[in-house]
Each structure stands twice: as structure tokens, then as C-alpha cells.
Amino acid sequence: MTAPASRRLTRDTQHKVIAGVCAGLARRLGLSRNGLRLAFVVSCVLPGPQFIAYVALWVVMPRDDRR
């Protein structure tokens, strides 16, 4: 049994800027796409593996096949 498309964690290919990771996470969590993107960019000034996490999610998250 699979979860409905809105409940699955997938990269949003319709509203993507780079890979659709932030848009997919925002859709899954019910947040604003631009708000999550802004939070990611702001978090990049803090020490931590933000870019590595983004690339890992880019590889792991399946593409959204809705068009």
C-alpha cells in the first residue's frame, strides 16, 4: 500500500529552483516553499553539513512524476 502523492516525500519538479528538494520538503510538511528556501539559505551561514544534506536528499528523494 502506498501513501497518497501529497503525503509522500518526493522532489517537486514543477516548483523547483535547483533540484526541488526544498519544494518537496515544504509540500510534505505543509510549509511555504519560499520560506523553507530562505531558511535553508540563512542556515548556510551556520556551521554544519547543510550542503551535504541537500545533496544527499537530492540523491535519495525520488522525483515527483506529476506533470
Rank of each mutant, 00 (worst) to 15 (best):
L38W: 12
Y54N: 06
R8M: 15
T2G: 05
C44R: 11
T10A: 14
W58I: 00
R67K: 09
P49L: 07
V21A: 09
V41Y: 11
D12N: 15
Q50V: 14
I18R: 02
F40Y: 15
V55R: 08
S6L: 07
V55E: 03
A23V: 04
G20S: 06
M1C: 10
F40H: 15
A56M: 04
A5Y: 09
F51C: 03
A5E: 13
L46A: 12
G30H: 02
A23H: 05
C44M: 15
R67L: 06
V45M: 10
V45W: 10
G20L: 08
C22V: 08
V17W: 00
A5V: 13
R63Q: 09
R11K: 15
V42D: 09
P62D: 10
C44V: 07
R7S: 12
A19P: 00
G20I: 10
L9F: 14
V59C: 10
R7C: 04
P47I: 12
G30Y: 01
T13D: 00
R37P: 01
A56K: 03
V45T: 11
V60Q: 05
R7T: 11
D64E: 13
R11H: 04
G30M: 03
K16T: 02
P49G: 08
V45G: 04
D65G: 10
L38E: 14
A53G: 01
R63Y: 05
L29H: 05
V59Q: 05
R8C: 15
M61N: 08
A19Q: 06
V45K: 08
D65A: 12
W58R: 11
A39C: 12
T10V: 15
S32E: 03
H15C: 04
V42G: 02
L25V: 15
A5N: 09
D12K: 10
A5M: 11
Q50G: 11
T13W: 00
T10I: 14
D12R: 12
G24A: 07
C44Q: 12
P47Y: 03
R66G: 07
F40M: 14
Y54I: 09
G30P: 03
A53M: 10
M1F: 10
A3P: 00
R28P: 00
R37D: 11
V42H: 07
T10R: 15
V60D: 06
G35T: 03
R67C: 01
V55L: 08
D64A: 05
R11D: 02
T13Y: 00
L38V: 13
D64S: 13
S32R: 02
R63V: 07
F40P: 02
A26W: 02
R63P: 02
A39K: 12
L36S: 00
A26K: 07
D65V: 08
A23T: 06
L31F: 07
V42E: 12
Q50A: 15
T2F: 09
V41N: 10
K16S: 06
V17E: 06
R37K: 11
T2L: 13
T2R: 13
Q14N: 09
P4M: 07
Q14L: 13
L31I: 01
K16F: 02
R37W: 05
C44F: 01
Q50F: 13
D64I: 05
K16A: 10
R11T: 08
V60A: 14
